[in-house]
Design a protein around this nucleic acid. Structure first.
Length: 331
DNA sequence: AAGCGTCAAGGCATG
DNA sequence: CATGCCTTGACGCTT
């Protein structure tokens, strides 16, 4: 089943743009704010946010379950259980009675996703740097990854290769070798779920392919364009390596577009031409919507071999538009 | 309601 | 050296 997914948030269109649908989106707090409260108030707040987030996640998954089956793919935000790995609040969250309630909620969400053929994923934040040259950063990065693996396990995933995706960049000066060392310290569930995504500057597709026997490779076709200037083709031989890395599971690839004011409304402009009027770093930023339909047409050809995670500011609204174009031109 | 300062955490490129 | 960019701008406080 060819799928087009969206990330973390569900929005509605308004006259000025779009805004979050309250009951489908998570809340948050900060360590600083919690630190200004009494212990009781801080813990009450943490618990309330977690429960609100579990409800919001459940609502979001059920909403996705009502969509066309081609649109049943969504990334869950990382802040379901806030401060789960933070030194000050770790023991609060490790309390078995609390874990039990979290697990009960998440297992229902996971079961619903399985029954509804919804593909789920996480994308831990930029502070996860498993190839850092600082050992403490590696340790905290692994803790953060294991948090995501816990949540996946509570949902009933992590039991077979890539039944759930936890996607990160290699990130850090130790590079591929650093990743190999960190791999030795990961739980079986995390290893089952972990995918690595090519980035714009350091670890590109060619570098990641060296790891294809360990982890699923998530090809971000926009990052690949930023790094190499190439609109990679679905027929490119390296796609075979990506497919192998997923070991029989249908892969996910990522698609985003540069901000619409930086690229032409139509046509596939070369990197060389784009750089006459802008810079690579500006081209990295994501657009609200996918306005250039010629670039979209190229991106949609990749659905031949994988599912598309649409990364854009307009979230579900943008992925719905891509699906409309897909139906018009490919179905 | 709207504006503003703040927020746990890294790494990189650019200017 | 400061800023912008990435999983995502939202929360909390003040006016």
């Amino acid at each position: 089943m060819k799928k087009i997914g969206f990330a973390c948030k569900y929005v509605d269109s308004t006259k000025t743009g779009f805004e979050n649908v309250k009951e489908l989106n998570m809340g948050a707090t900060t360590v600083a704010w919690l630190g200004r409260q009494s212990k009781q108030v801080a813990e009450k707040k943490l618990w309330e946010i977690a429960m609100q987030n579990l409800t919001a996640t459940s609502n979001l998954i059920r909403k996705v379950g009502t969509l066309d089956e081609h649109l049943r793919m969504v990334r869950i935000g990382s802040d379901v259980i806030p401060m789960y790995t933070h030194d000050l609040y770790r023991s609060f969250w490790q309390e078995p009675s609390r874990i039990k309630i979290i697990e009960q909620n998440l297992s229902k969400i996971g079961q619903y996703a399985k029954d509804s053929n919804i593909r789920l994923s996480f994308h831990p934040g930029q502070f996860v740097c498993i190839a850092s040259d600082r050992d403490d950063v590696i340790t905290r990065s692994l803790e953060e990854l294991e948090y995501h693996a816990d949540m996946a396990r509570f949902m009933g995933f992590g039991q077979s290769k890539l039944d759930f995706k936890i996607n990160v960049h290699v990130s850090g000066r130790r590079g591929i070798a650093g990743f190999d060392a960190a791999w030795q310290r990961m739980s079986p569930e995390l290893r089952n779920c972990l995918t690595l995504e090519n980035d714009e500057y350091q670890q590109g597709l060619d570098e990641l392919l060296a790891l294809k026997d360990k982890v699923g490779i998530v090809l971000d076709i926009h990052h690949h364009f930023i790094k190499t200037g190439e609109y990679i083709k679905a027929s490119d031989p390296r796609i075979q390596g990506v497919l192998e890395s997923w070991q029989g599971v249908r892969p996910t690839f990522h698609y985003s577009q540069s901000k619409s004011e930086l690229i032409p409304r139509t046509g596939m402009t070369t990197m060389e031409t784009l750089l006459e009027s802008t810079s690579k770093s500006k081209l990295r930023a994501h657009s609200d919507f996918y306005t250039n339909k010629d670039i979209n047409r190229w991106a949609l050809t990749h659905l031949e071999w994988g599912n598309m995670m649409a990364e854009s500011k307009a979230k579900n609204l943008a992925s719905f538009e891509l699906f409309d174009q897909f139906k018009e031109e490919f179905m």
